[in-house]
Design a protein around this nucleic acid. Structure first.
Lengths: 242, 242
DNA sequence: ACAAAAGTGTTACACGTACACCCATGA
DNA sequence: TCATGGGTGTACGTGTAACACTTTTGT
């Protein structure tokens, strides 16, 4: 980055533009989780006005001296107690009247994780924090419904172009679990044999010398995924469609 | 959208949060063009401090009462005279010190067009406005280099997943032109026969009863593209890789 | 007739699809 | 031994990759 001469002219220029510097910036974190059955999203209940009592996506105002990417992690942790996880930026909403308190432009981030790993605990302005099935969601605060739908569209697209899903599953998983996850996200059914072939041919799965325990049928082999091979695939791009 | 009761409590709450409402929001518009030979990008030269004399991506501060999407069109028109074209939002940059005049978060938009259609004319703070070859770009204002690279990565990805490129070509074009465009964007070479087969099999191309004129070899058939079929493809997603 | 680029055809091979079948376990 | 889901194999059609060939124009 080039260093630029900061003159007193800049101070004057800033003064001239003061009326432009009245925006608030917020980050909203759409976190998807999977429990082996359903696709869920992490929500909070607002304990304060506006929209007190409404369900909302965890999000808050960014402070003047923090990077927005850092802010996404900080806010998610503040509201739900989840640790620093990787959040991917997906979209920015900037309609004029989307927030009743002033002009707030919000940057939306999203993440995927195995919901069995973390238990959310509400704090800051959140009175509740919990996972909720995607099909059970009603009215939401602000334009959060729209934001959620954008995130779902992103997930839909992404699952077909990247070997996602590993982030939603436990470290060791069976092919049937993986298939069920894909079927849940895309709301379709896949042929068992073909799903196995396709997934295995990508070489992202490392077979383990372990099997399931305590199931009343033939126990399934467990797999881990190969992060190196995963990176390669992400780089070159692919299309998953069965 | 639900109507929310606006109480005087909200006024107080806004007061309490005043220190958060000091952000500036800007939009930056990365416009790619194609002249039949090279992939180019629309740049302006800054006529004012900071970074006076530097090349920049057309962009400016958003006013308090305009939607950011509208702002992207307004700003592009103000600086370069280009008419309202569809701009797609791709990314938001929010590092703390990216702008020397204050905390400015910028939302990046991008567009593709046939550069022969419009001639840019500088106005507002732009002292120049012109097309420039992508490989001839040097130092840029702010973090615009980084922004440009993000837009190029987006274009790279997009061209492989959507029948793009039509936006960069004249309404009627030959398959060789289309192939050359793809080769330019992706920086690779394709087999002529296979490229034709693949493109035609997508059914997005409508053959016309016209041919090129005034070429000193067999004149090529002209095509238009089918917007309906295009939409279908965009919906279902596909992967273009030869 | 020649150069140059348009446009077509052929072949071998890889991959997707649909479907049938066998395997290991607990009850 | 039966039910249940795990796991494998095959046969067919479609799509891709590499390459050679024919066609149509201006000069």
């Amino acid at each position: 980055m080039t260093q630029v001469q900061i003159s007193s002219d800049l101070q004057a220029e800033r003064k001239r533009l003061d009326s432009f510097f009245q925006f608030g910036i917020s980050v909203d974190c759409v976190v998807f989780g999977y429990d082996g059955q359903n696709l869920q999203v992490l929500l909070v209940e607002r304990g304060v006005e506006p929209y007190a009592g409404f369900e909302a996506i965890p999000g808050d105002l960014v402070t003047l001296n923090e990077d927005i990417t850092q802010a996404s992690k900080r806010v998610l942790h503040d509201l739900t107690g989840l640790p620093d996880i990787y959040l991917e930026q997906i979209n920015t909403f900037g309609a004029v009247h989307r927030h009743p308190i002033g002009r707030v432009v919000t940057v939306v981030y999203y993440a995927l994780l195995d919901k069995n790993l973390y238990n959310p605990h509400p704090s800051s302005w959140a009175s509740e924090a919990y996972w909720k099935n995607l099909d059970a969601i009603g009215e939401m605060a602000f334009d959060h419904r729209q934001i959620l739908e954008a995130a779902m569209a992103h997930l839909h697209h992404k699952v077909q172009h990247q070997p996602i899903g590993f982030e939603l599953l436990p470290e060791e998983f069976t092919l049937a679990q993986l298939q069920h996850l894909y079927e849940t996200i895309l709301n379709t059914a896949f042929d068992k044999g073909n799903f196995r072939k396709k997934m295995l041919s990508m070489n992202v799965l490392i077979p383990l010398d372990k099997t399931q325990k305590e199931v009343r049928h033939r126990p399934a082999r467990l797999f881990r995924f190969d992060p190196k091979r995963y990176e390669q695939l992400v780089q070159k791009g692919f299309l998953f469609e069965l």
